[in-house]
Design a protein around this nucleic acid. Structure first.
Length: 468
DNA sequence: GGGTGATCATGA
DNA sequence: TCATGATCACCC
């Protein structure tokens, strides 16, 4: 049996953590696995590592797991996505007690106690083969460099609760530390909030580090050179707003043709995606064009270039696509708020470019004012409904018809069309019609993805242009 | 010119 | 070779 590390000093804990790297759960527990332990519940991998990795018995303490060293243990699942190990889910930090929250200060808050130092144990998740799950890496994370961002989000949550609006809280308002819903389901998932002027109850929530945030940290461990930081490159302080700064840097190039901009910046203009990406990285003083933008990865910011015609109210020429969804993975998403799509929609930097006609040469396309966008509450409600609807169609079984088209044929299906929806539709997104996926009922269909309706993109772009 | 299925171009 | 962002093509 493993020694109890709960009162150990930091070096001992880290030494033990390092021993665990590369080991499977079976290696770690060995013959103890035969003990009568029930690991059926969700989160059990965490309890397992606590017990067999560090000899800590399960507890609900407000103190960090390693009391003496002030270190919290977080066991973080990784899964394969596109041949790469990525963080599977958000990391829960502590449940929120609304009543206590509004009386706390950040510096001595219960959240900060757990966040100050975190020992991340990253393991390759596999629910079907418990014993073979392997510890990939262990590392001590320090709050320091992200404390401004995280404490601001904590304060913002506190402020909402203080105003009696705990029932309105939404995970999507936050980038790193978010109050996500938590609980076992049922009545106990609603709790009384301290200020009841608007609503007596609010959903039970827990502070969690968002998946993209933790994933960026994980990726920075695996390949430290793949990121550059806006803050570092531009020498910004933690208080500077990175989004505002970026828009400001765009300013000298607005309303000018891409050809001219690229010449001035000494960039080779190849296509729209390439141009906007390169312009952004150039104005952010990136050393390498292939670097990922640290802050964008952390906050889940995606860049979308949208060709529009400014002479007809900034109307886009096309809908905006998202990555392909695998139907069998899609239907396993818990709900919209835990879906891949909601992550794609966390925050988008739209870069509209004006094209006189759809086939206006790119060099003559005019860079218009970029803007950041996240769904507002109303939009999110619609998106959730339309996502739910798509899921139920898929679960019921997609219907495919082969219809005459010109000289040949093409396939039609009953997935949501842009004519049937306000914001989202589904549409092929494949190499060609031979590039296919299989739906939950075994029906073969061209790979599909979600798209933002052209009319919707039109509405947010024209609104943004009016607001300038 | 919109709508929708199909496909291109690029980069890892 | 594949995923991705973006764009094409044809009917109405």
């Amino acid at each position: 049996m493993t020694r109890d590390y709960s009162m150990a000093v930091e070096t001992d804990i880290l030494e033990r953590a390092e021993e665990l790297e590369g080991k499977t759960f079976l290696d770690i527990a060995g013959e103890d696995l035969s003990e009568d332990i029930n690991f059926v519940n969700k989160g059990n991998q965490g309890l397992f590592i606590e017990k067999f990795g560090f000899g800590i018995s399960s507890n609900n303490d407000k103190d960090p797991d390693f009391k003496h060293a002030g270190i919290e243990l977080k066991v973080c699942p990784l899964k394969f996505s596109k041949k790469q190990l990525v963080v599977k889910e958000r990391t829960k930090i502590c449940s929120i007690n609304y009543k206590e929250l509004i009386q706390e200060n950040w510096l001595d808050s219960s959240a900060r106690k757990k966040l100050r130092k975190i020992l991340f144990v990253f393991y390759h998740w596999n629910n079907n083969s418990w014993n073979s799950q392997k510890i990939i890496k262990t590392v001590l994370w320090h709050l320091e460099s992200d404390e401004v961002l995280i404490s601001n989000e904590w304060r913002s949550t506190k402020e909402v609760v203080k105003q009696g609006n705990a029932h309105l809280l939404s995970e999507s308002w936050y980038k790193a530390l978010a109050p996500n819903t938590s609980g076992a389901g049922g009545d106990r998932d609603n709790v009384e909030q301290p200020i009841q002027i608007h609503s007596k109850y609010a959903k039970r929530r827990a502070f969690s580090l968002k998946r993209p945030f933790v994933n960026q940290y994980w990726e920075s461990l695996v390949s430290p050179d793949s990121f550059e930081s806006i803050q570092e490159n531009l020498n910004l302080s933690h208080e500077d707003n990175i989004e505002d700064k970026l828009l400001e840097l765009f300013r000298p190039f607005i309303n000018r043709p891409l050809g001219q901009i690229c010449k001035e910046l000494n960039i080779e203009l190849r296509n729209a995606k390439n141009a906007t990406n390169l312009i952004i990285k150039k104005i952010l003083r990136f050393r390498s064009f292939s670097s990922k933008i640290k802050e964008f990865e952390q906050s889940g910011i995606k860049i979308k270039t949208v060709p529009v015609n400014k002479d007809i109210g900034y109307k886009p020429y096309e809908a905006t696509s998202f990555p392909v969804v695998k139907f069998n993975e899609l239907i396993q998403d818990e709900d919209y708020y835990n879906s891949a799509l909601s992550e794609q929609l966390m925050r988008i930097l739209f870069v509209p470019i004006h094209r006189e006609k759809r086939d206006t040469p790119l060099a003559d396309a005019i860079l218009l004012n970029p803007f950041f966008w996240s769904p507002d509450e109303k939009q999110e409600t619609i998106i959730k409904e339309e996502w739910d609807n798509a899921i139920s169609i898929i679960k019921e079984g997609i219907e495919i018809k082969r219809v005459r088209w010109g000289n040949g044929f093409r396939e039609t299906n009953n997935l949501p069309k842009s004519s049937e929806t306000q914001i989202l539709h589904m549409r092929p997104h494949a190499q060609n019609s031979q590039d296919r996926d299989v739906d939950p009922n075994g029906v073969s269909i061209t790979k599909q993805s979600f798209w933002l309706n052209m009319s919707f993109v039109h509405s947010i772009i024209s609104k943004s242009m009016r607001d300038i």
